[in-house]
């Protein structure tokens, strides 16, 4: 056994450079971690849209198209109506999963954030690194999903490609909020239960994903209006096939989602700093 070679951290570390690049180092580490299950990530990203489009888009779609006749749903075939909503839903869900689980792992399960905070990294850099690595992963999911939608004829790629941008925008906004929420959660079991039962399911079911929310009773429509997925879906339908939106509604959709982005990031910064220095 040989002794360690040693020049000392004062010589080998460029402190100023390191302090500036903390977010980048966290992103690099997260992406390297994701590479360990890249196969299951890719398989999931491909199979998920395939099953949804085959069962809902084609199966349920055929039935609905027959009933709706030439008027269609919102003036288009059901699968075209459905596609932007599914794209937004998968973007939001993937982003949410990518910020929530690493954050719970970091603070509760393996306490890896405390190991990271023993290096020059700050709480804010760890939060932002987690956030941006989730964004990169979600870009991958959205692009694959969009490609499958094109394969099924659910979107016209030349026209509908901006729906990838609106989906990612919504995911990035709501993901910031979930980053703050996960960093706040002291009781991980309770948090995951609440997230699964009171957030993901209603988000998916009452946001106009499968039918226009105007067809729901008014009290349930409120749920849809509050849901970030509905705002994302409206924007996605607008850019994909020309779903009518007034200028003010477009501003409201973007603005409403932006509130999640700003409050979520501020909440996350606060909680990361607090929990790492408690």
């Amino acid at each position: 056994m040989t002794d360690l070679s040693r020049r000392g951290s004062l010589v080998i570390i460029d402190t100023d450079r390191t302090l500036k690049r903390g977010v980048f180092y966290v992103i690099e580490a997260r992406l390297r971690t994701m590479m360990h299950w890249i196969f299951s990530l890719l398989t999931g990203s491909l199979l998920n849209p395939f099953f949804y489009l085959a069962s809902l888009g084609i199966g349920v779609g055929t039935f609905i198209n027959q009933r709706a006749g030439s008027a269609g749903i919102d003036g288009v075939k059901y699968i075209i109506f459905l596609a932007p909503a599914l794209l937004s839903a998968v973007a939001i869900q993937d982003f949410m999963g990518e910020v929530v689980f690493p954050t719970l792992q970091g603070f509760k399960w393996e306490k890896t954030f405390f190991a990271m905070n023993a290096t020059p990294l700050t709480g804010r850099q760890i939060a932002l690194g987690t956030y941006f690595s989730s964004l990169i992963r979600t870009i991958g999911s959205v692009v694959i999903y969009f490609a499958v939608l094109v394969g099924f004829g659910a979107v016209d790629p030349a026209r509908a490609w901006p729906s990838m941008v609106t989906s990612l925008y919504a995911a990035a906004c709501f993901g910031a909020f979930m980053l703050g929420a996960a960093a706040h959660a002291e009781n991980d079991d309770l948090f995951l239960n609440l997230m699964g039962r009171l957030l993901i399911m209603p988000l998916f079911l009452f946001s106009g994903t499968f039918y226009p929310i105007s067809s729901m009773p008014l009290p349930l429509q409120w749920l849809g209006w509050a849901s970030p997925l509905w705002h994302a879906t409206e924007l996605g339908r607008w850019v994909s096939y020309g779903h009518h939106l007034s200028g003010s509604m477009i501003a409201i959709h973007f603005g409403y989602l932006a509130i999640f982005l700003v409050t979520g990031l501020l909440w996350a910064f606060n909680r990361f700093d607090y929990r790492l220095s408690k």
Binding site: S9, I13, D14, V26, R32, T33, H36, E110, P120, L121
Partner: peptide
């Protein structure tokens, strides 16, 4: 208490930690 990343390999734990220092 050890706070290693359990799902990663021994080498990867060392690698990502070294990178946090900007090495």
């Amino acid at each position: 208490q050890d706070n290693l990343d359990q799902a990663l390999t021994v080498t990867d734990n060392l690698y990502i930690y070294g990178r946090y220092f900007g090495l």
